[in-house]
C-alpha cells in the first residue's frame, strides 16, 4: 500500500470519525442518564437524513440551513419518545427495554420503506463533487463542512455538560438517580431533556450526512451498530470516551478499507469491540468497577 493511499485513508477516517462521534454522543448521553440502550437511535438519524433530503429536494433548502429546521423537530421527537415510550420502559426488565426499542427500530424502518420506498436518495449539489487538495490527499468539501460543524457542536455540548448547571444536573442524575431525586432534582425533566438533546444531535448529523451518504430505510441500523461499538469502546455513558471511540472506529474502518474488501472492513469495528469487551468491559475511559 502506498503512502498516499494510507494518508488518504487517515484523512477520510478522521472525517468519518467526526460524524460518528456526533451520532454516538447522543446514544451515550441517553444511556448515561437513563441506563437504557436505545436500539432505535439510528432510525432517528435516518429520519433526520430524510428530513434533510426532502428539505433540499422539495423546498430547495441547503442542508446546512436545514439543520436549523431539522434539529428542533428531532428534539421534539426525542421528548415524544420519552413521554410516549421510554417513561414506561423504565419500569420493565432490561430485556423488555431492549425489545421495546428494537420494536421501534423495526417500525420506523418499515414505515420509511412504505413512505419513501427503498430507493437510495442523496443531496447532489454542485459542491458535492468539489474537493480540496492537501498535498497528495483530497478531501470533499462536504466532508470538511460536516467535520467542522460536528466538532463545533461537540465542543459546545462538552462545555454545556461541564460548565453549566444544566450539565451538572445531568451528571448528577447519571451518577445516582435516587441521590439526585433526594436533592430535589426533577429527574423526569432531566430524562426528557436528555432524550431531547440525545436525539436532537441527530438533527444536526442527519442533514450533514445526507449530502455525503445515500439515505435509505435501512441506513439507521448500520449506524446504531457502529454507535454501540463506539460508546462501549469509550465506556458507556462517557462523553469523552465516545469521542475517542469514534476516532478509533473511524480510523480503523477506513484503514482496513484501503487494505481489504469492503466486507472485511465492515467487520473491523466489531472485532475491535470484541477485543475491548474482553479486556476492558468498562471501556477505555471509564474507571474499573471490578474489584
Amino acid at each position: 500500500m502506498s503512502l498516499d493511499i494510507f494518508l488518504q485513508a487517515i484523512v477520510s477516517g478522521l472525517a468519518n470519525a467526526a460524524m460518528y462521534a456526533l451520532i454516538a454522543v447522543g446514544l451515550t448521553l441517553v444511556f448515561g442518564v437513563m441506563r437504557i440502550i436505545n436500539f432505535a437511535h439510528g432510525e432517528f438519524l435516518m429520519i433526520a437524513m430524510y428530513a434533510g433530503y426532502f428539505a433540499w429536494s422539495l423546498l430547495g433548502i441547503d442542508p446546512i440551513v436545514a439543520i436549523v429546521l431539522v434539529t428542533p423537530v428531532l428534539m421534539i421527537l426525542g421528548t415524544l419518545l420519552y413521554s410516549g415510550v421510554m417513561r414506561f420502559a423504565l419500569r420493565v426488565p432490561e430485556i423488555n427495554q431492549m425489545a421495546v426499542t428494537l420494536g421501534l427500530s423495526m417500525l420506523f424502518q418499515h414505515l420509511a420503506l412504505v413512505a419513501f420506498t427503498g430507493d437510495n436518495m442523496l443531496v447532489t449539489q454542485a459542491r458535492a463533487v468539489a474537493g480540496v487538495e492537501l498535498g497528495p490527499v483530497v478531501v470533499q468539501v462536504n466532508q470538511l463542512i460536516a467535520c467542522g460543524i460536528s466538532m463545533a457542536l461537540l465542543a459546545t455540548l462538552y462545555l454545556v455538560l461541564q460548565r453549566t448547571d444544566f450539565g451538572l444536573i445531568m451528571r448528577a442524575v447519571a451518577q445516582s438517580r435516587d441521590g439526585a431525586a433526594l436533592s430535589g432534582i426533577d429527574v423526569t425533566g432531566v430524562y426528557k431533556w436528555a432524550m431531547a438533546v440525545g436525539i436532537g444531535t441527530l438533527g444536526v448529523a442527519g442533514p450533514l450526512l445526507v449530502s455525503i451518504l445515500y439515505v435509505n430505510p435501512h441506513v439507521g441500523a448500520l449506524f446504531t451498530l457502529k454507535a454501540f461499538v463506539i460508546v462501549i469502546l469509550g465506556g458507556l455513558g462517557n462523553f469523552t470516551g465516545a469521542l475517542l471511540g469514534a476516532l478509533i472506529v473511524g480510523l480503523a474502518e477506513s484503514i482496513a478499507g484501503a487494505w481489504f474488501s469492503a466486507s472485511v472492513a465492515a467487520a473491523v469495528p466489531f472485532v475491535i469491540l470484541i477485543l475491548i469487551l474482553l479486556t476492558r468491559p468498562e471501556g477505555l475511559m471509564n474507571r474499573s468497577r471490578r474489584a
Binding site: V85, F88, A89, V92, P93, N96, Q97, A99, V100, L102, G103, L104, S105, M106, L107, Q109, H110, L111, L113, V114
Partner: peptide, 21 residues
Amino acid sequence: MPGGDIVVYAVLLAVLALLLP
C-alpha cells in the same frame, strides 16, 4: 403494503413488552 407484516409485529412487540411483560 410491502413490509406491512413487520410494521404490525413491531408495534405488537413494543406494546407487549411494555404492557404484558
